[in-house]
Amino acid sequence: MLENFSFRTIIEYLPLFGQGLITTVWLSALSFAGALAVGIVLAAMNLQRGRLFRIAAKAYIDAVRATPLLAQLYFLYFGLPRLGLVLPELVVGIIALSLNSGAYVAEIIRAGILSIPRGQVEAGVASGMTYVQRMRLVILPQAFKVTIPPLLGQAIVLVKDSALLSLISVSELTRAGQLLASDRFMPAEGFITIAAFYLLLYYGLKGLAALSSRWLGLQPARSST
């Protein structure tokens, strides 16, 4: 049983957990920015007339969605050095998360653009706008609105996924729990504490998603993720 549960040890390790939490937050933030960039490029490729772009984007998205993040992470971790790219684990991790999440972000953006009623496009055409003008003035401002809640949902997934970076020895939150578990043989203290920290991040982002839905005047986000 957990009668020996030691809050004292948790407090002793609190600086380590704090550091891990901060690392998780900023590496997730960086990866999310990367994912947005990747997602926008992919979504733009998907909307091109040229077939090659569309096929390439679709193939990339399907490949990412049909394989686990952990395998993708190992692919880069063990594979990049082979290409002469020896990068710190942290950087490899951020690249993996960006490339992985980017595929999902691309789908969210695409769904957002497709959610705009045809009548909007037709109204744009009728008033003599070019393709770029229609996109910029009519479609994207509306699509942007509906993508915010699912993007925050994807951010939640990304934060949780970042735990896998502990398996390539990145000193983030989960790694801090593993250290406490292995140094002091206190897995309960280690893993329950980090679970609590992750829940903190989860409820924060979830609250933000709910708020954003309300601000944007959307229906409360349907249970996605």
Binding site: K160, T174, Y202
Partner: peptide, 16 residues
């Protein structure tokens, strides 16, 4: 369950 990483859940179950 939705708020915690699956890796952490596995560790919790396996070690605790």
């Amino acid at each position: 369950i939705r708020g915690t990483p699956f890796l952490v859940q596995i560790f919790l179950i396996f070690f605790i």
